[in-house]
């Protein structure tokens, strides 16, 4: 398992691995928002938590098509499926690698982009905490979507259509934590729900992802 994680991380770092692309996308989306809604500081400050969450979600979504498709094309998935490592573990590790290369940098970059959007000071902490709790769920749910569409030639658009409805609960609770935190409201309920969704997704979805992947491999 560690070998697979190290390989995926190494592949992401090497040329053409796409490391940092998600981060750059996150940055550019965040920059586009003031350009489209206007520079009023009060308006930007109130929508900042939602914009940061939406940007992070889209950045995650766009990097999903590489998650399994490359291994599918070059036959690695066939070989992994015949290896001693259970496919459930393999998809979990791939989701973890996706989180480390995409989700974690987004969490770390969010406060910097929060400055650009005039995020209220108490919001910084809660944006980071909510993203830290929520992005693992985004990676795991996305892995399920990637496994569903891995056999399709141009599955990228379809995958977005399938994954986005599944992202909704995570987005709602995550953005709610960030928004409430920014205006100093009580955040306990959405925070617990967000943590619950993440924990349950990480625990259960790999089984569905592996089952779907096996169907696609036959």
């Amino acid at each position: 398992m560690i070998a697979l994680l190290m390989r995926d991380l190494r592949l992401a770092m090497r040329a053409g691995g796409g490391f940092g692309l998600g981060l750059a996308f996150f940055l550019i989306v965040t920059v586009m928002v003031p350009l489209s809604v206007g520079p009023q500081a009060a308006l930007l400050g109130s929508i900042a938590p939602g914009v940061l969450w939406l940007g992070a979600l889209l950045a995650c979504l766009l990097s999903l098509d590489r998650l399994l498709a490359l291994d599918w094309e070059d036959g690695s998935l066939d070989l992994l499926a015949t290896a001693p490592l259970p496919l459930e573990a393999a998809v979990s590790v791939k989701a973890l690698a996706h989180w480390i290369t995409t989700g974690l940098p987004l969490v770390l970059a969010a406060p910097v982009l929060g400055v650009l959007l005039n995020l209220p000071v108490p919001g910084f902490k809660w944006v980071m905490i909510s993203l830290l709790l929520g992005t693992p769920a985004l990676s795991v749910i996305g892995t399920f979507g990637a496994a569903l569409t891995v056999g399709l030639k141009r599955g990228g658009l379809l995958m977005s259509l399938l994954v986005m409805p599944l992202y909704m609960p995570t987005l709602i609770f995550g953005a709610e934590v960030a928004r409430r935190g920014a205006i100093g409201m009580d955040i306990q309920t959405p925070l617990l729900m967000l943590a619950g969704i993440s924990a349950a997704s990480i625990a259960l979805l790999p089984f569905a992802s592996a089952a779907v992947l096996r169907i696609n491999l036959r």
């Binding site: 569903l148 599944l166 569905a208 089952a211 779907v212």
Partner: peptide, 22 residues
């Protein structure tokens, strides 16, 4: 594949329902 999507989707649709209420 669609059966699995329906299965997983149902769980998330239900979650969305509660999330949206909240």
């Amino acid at each position: 594949l669609t059966s699995f999507l329906c299965l997983v989707g149902s769980v998330f649709a239900l979650l969305s329902r509660y999330a949206v209420n909240f």
